[in-house]
């Protein structure tokens, strides 16, 4: 073995040790704060619930069977998925043009535009949802406006799926736009100029050149948006009303109203598993050339 090769091996080992030192603390932290509770929760979900004993040690699939054999819970899961898909589609439809325009603008107001998108993130989701309640509730701003202008009450928007979708879109949209803006800014504007020089109209250039290049980023933005929507808690609770059920509020109901930790654990795992499965499925459905590599 040559001296150079030996030195290279030593260097590589040093790099590996250094990487381990850098990654180690974070990995241990993640394991302790995320994996360990999940393992505990998984174990709880196999326990038995007794109304007076609360959680009783067992190894039973009963809680999972309860979820998958009761149409009520399956409907709640279906509602959660439907709302999340609609929210994701709405965020992409609204977010892609805004993010592209934001990425390409050379206006001196660009940083102000970015701030305008970031600012809502300074306010908690619950507070913003409370704002929607003031807007949509009976006797709220929208109702007062239609009564004053047209003499009729506004449509009953509170406690509807529509209100929940609007509320979650308003929360997820800044995340979608900021993710997509970074993606579009990474695409060389000269490509659009080249497309234009070959006669492509801006819409065609966007569709045939920019969007395919941005597709991995669009996919990530969609995944982020979908995951956030699947796990939405405050918005469905406050805007959907008590008769509208999604998975995260239902999970808290089982924990807080019934003290049923095992079934709440099942709901958590079903929610997590369906979110991950659908996210990967969506990723797999995208043609290979567009995927993140």
């Amino acid at each position: 073995m040559s001296v150079a090769a030996a030195l290279e091996r030593v260097d590589r080992r040093r790099e590996a040790v250094s990487a381990a030192f850098l990654l180690g603390p974070a990995t241990i932290f993640v394991c302790l704060t995320m994996v360990a509770p999940l393992v505990l929760l998984a174990r709880y979900s196999l326990n038995r619930f007794d109304p007076t004993e609360l959680m009783v040690t067992a190894l039973t699939p009963q809680n999972y069977l309860r979820f998958f054999t009761d149409p009520f819970y399956l409907r709640v899961l279906a509602t959660t998925i439907r709302v999340s898909v609609v929210v994701t589609a709405a965020c992409l439809v609204l977010g892609i043009p805004m993010a592209w325009r934001l990425a390409r603008t050379e206006s001196r107001w660009k940083s102000a535009y970015v701030m305008a998108i970031v600012l809502p993130l300074f306010i908690g989701a619950t507070t913003r949802t409370a704002g929607w309640m003031i807007l949509l509730a009976r006797g709220g701003m929208l109702d007062l406006a239609t009564r004053t202008l047209f003499g009729v009450p506004s449509l009953e928007l509170m406690n509807t799926e529509f209100a929940v979708v609007v509320g979650i879109v308003s929360i997820n949209l800044p995340f979608t736009i900021l993710t997509l803006q970074a993606v579009f800014e990474g695409i060389d504007p000269r490509l659009e100029e080249a497309a234009a020089s070959m006669g492509a109209a801006p819409a065609r250039s966007f569709q045939r050149v920019i969007l395919p290049l941005a597709m991995p980023g669009v996919l990530i933005a969609a995944m982020l948006c979908f995951i956030l929507a699947m796990n939405a808690f405050a918005t469905p609770l406050l805007l959907g009303g008590p008769r509208f059920q999604m998975m995260a509020p239902l999970l808290y109901w089982e924990f807080s109203t019934n003290n049923d930790w095992p079934f709440a654990g099942v709901l958590a795992f079903v929610l997590m598993a369906s979110t991950l499965a659908l996210t990967f499925l969506a990723g797999a459905a995208v043609p290979r050339r567009y995927r993140v590599r």
């Binding site: 174990r43 326990n47 007794d50 004993e53 609360l54 959680m55 009783v56 040690t57």
Partner: peptide
């Protein structure tokens, strides 16, 4: 008592 929370033996119940 059936609940795993209630026993004092160093079993898996205690671990849980």
């Amino acid at each position: 008592m059936g609940s795993h929370m209630m026993t004092a033996r160093p079993t898996r119940r205690r671990v849980l």
